[in-house]
């Protein structure tokens, strides 16, 4: 399959690969998987004052599109507030990376991982997950 140039770029030079301390109270961790393809994605966010995302890291076991999707998602949310990050949709990733239909589930996985990480942070700090996003960790639609 032909990957778009942006996917190849993110895949070859992934941004923000790595880990944060998941026991840190200011860090939210989301680990999700898609059984159909066996991909697993971990996304971590470090949240600073004013609910601003100071740092984001990911680790992904999966195809190039899954790695590119998580790389892009971490890149986008850095510097954003939790509320802004909550609005990120998988379709934004699909459009930016020109993902073909068979790879859309990779972007869903990235969105799920992000939401799970935000939910984890909010839960840790006794805050509520904003309306319409009651999910914690879940398995991605594939």
């Amino acid at each position: 399959m032909a990957y778009s140039e942006k996917v190849i770029d993110h895949f070859q030079h992934p941004h923000n690969m790595g880990s944060l301390d998941k026991n840190d109270k200011t860090v939210g961790t989301g680990i999700v998987g898609a059984p159909e393809c066996g991909d697993v994605m971990k996304l971590q966010l470090k949240i600073g004052p004013g609910n601003v995302i100071e740092d984001a890291k990911f680790k992904t076991f999966g195809c190039g599109s899954a790695i590119a999707s998580s790389s892009l998602a971490t890149e986008w949310v850095k510097g954003k507030t939790i509320e802004e990050a909550m609005k990120l949709k998988n379709t934004d990733i699909v459009n930016e990376l020109s993902l073909p239909p068979v790879k859309i589930h990779c972007s869903v996985l990235a969105e799920d991982a992000l939401k799970a990480a935000l939910a984890d942070y909010l839960g840790k700090n006794g805050q509520k997950v904003p309306d319409g996003e009651p999910e914690k960790t879940k398995e991605g639609v594939s």
Binding site: I31, G33, V40, K42, K59, F61, T137, K138
Partner: peptide
């Protein structure tokens, strides 16, 4: 979701 397995896979 098998969270423990996810970590091992990563």
């Amino acid at each position: 979701p098998p969270q423990g397995l996810f970590e091992e896979i990563l």
